[in-house]
Design a protein around this nucleic acid. Sequence first.
DNA 1: GACCTGATGACACCGAGTGTCGTCGCATAG
DNA 2: CTATGCGACGACACTCGGTGTCATCAGGTC
Lengths: 186, 186
Amino acid sequence: MARWAPDTRERLRTAAMELFAERGFDATTVPDIVERAGVTRRTFFRHFGDKREVFFGDDEIPRLAAEMLAAAPADLPPFAIAWAGFLSLSADRFEPRRHEIVAARELIESEPALRERDLQKQADLRAALVEGYRARGVEPLQARVLAGVAVELLQMALEQWASDDTGAPLRDHLERVRREMSAVLS
Amino acid sequence: MARWAPDTRERLRTAAMELFAERGFDATTVPDIVERAGVTRRTFFRHFGDKREVFFGDDEIPRLAAEMLAAAPADLPPFAIAWAGFLSLSADRFEPRRHEIVAARELIESEPALRERDLQKQADLRAALVEGYRARGVEPLQARVLAGVAVELLQMALEQWASDDTGAPLRDHLERVRREMSAVLS
DNA sequence: GACCTGATGACACCGAGTGTCGTCGCATAG
DNA sequence: CTATGCGACGACACTCGGTGTCATCAGGTC
């Protein structure tokens, strides 16, 4: 029998998410979390550098994006790569977890601290896309614009999807937003 | 002679900006600032709700944007309003303060705390644009896309402008980015 | 001259985050 | 079987950001 239960990190995460759902993010203190998890404050900060980090796990999306950009055929048009990635993410990561994601987004919207971090996550994805495009030899300005357009497109589609009562799939929203963007810049 | 020097807020701001420039944002503590300004910590937080608020003054840009959207002729195409606003801002607010703005952006890039707040400011402008467009009767999705595209366009142009050694005017970068965005979404 | 008001100081809190050191179970080498 | 080192945790102390509360004191008002 181990002296320490081996799942400390997961216990902390679970306790935190429960409390965030019960009282909100800001009203939940680290002392609250560690009390429920049965560890010390210090231990919490050994597993998570930040209270927000419990909420937004590790950033796998930027990593996935970088991998897709690196793996895509050289002759594929740049924007088509991001677009294919979004459709893939949509089916694999977003659509199956709709309820979960909508709930998380509501919490984020209601808490400034989470909102700021969410924006930072978007910026991280943007940076990963810029890097990935430049690694493919795309011109700097074009890479930046591709990344900016792609991230904003995804973000807007996610917003519409999350607030859509009809339950239309994310893919539809992606396509609608894309058409609307083209029209705006006509 | 007044008991309290009447320019407390400005003294705090000046002291803070000096220290930010000398040591960086994070390495500057509120105790440091108030010592130089000759007041108490408590007084600092009476004038600024936040350490970051000293750096990013009040948000006049979203306010200006809302005013321009409200004042624009009803028959002007939606995107043309934002575009005209950017050209106006470019000449009046950005171009004359190039050095100042570039220095500020460098500090922002180097300090995560400032970076997060900067992203939040962009989101505020975006929200003001959405609100302004909707007040003009623009459809929700279109309003959102207009705002998203406009803010991202401005942001990308500002980045290019700030890192451009040739000193080309912001207006040129706005136009280049706009063309590039159109091309990407072709 | 009494009274009100507004900005400030003084003081006490709390929570986030960090450095440091000691402890103890466990694996592994000898 | 013992020693040794490692890894995760607790204990403690500290700094800083931010807030609530109350006393103080100038200047203006009635």
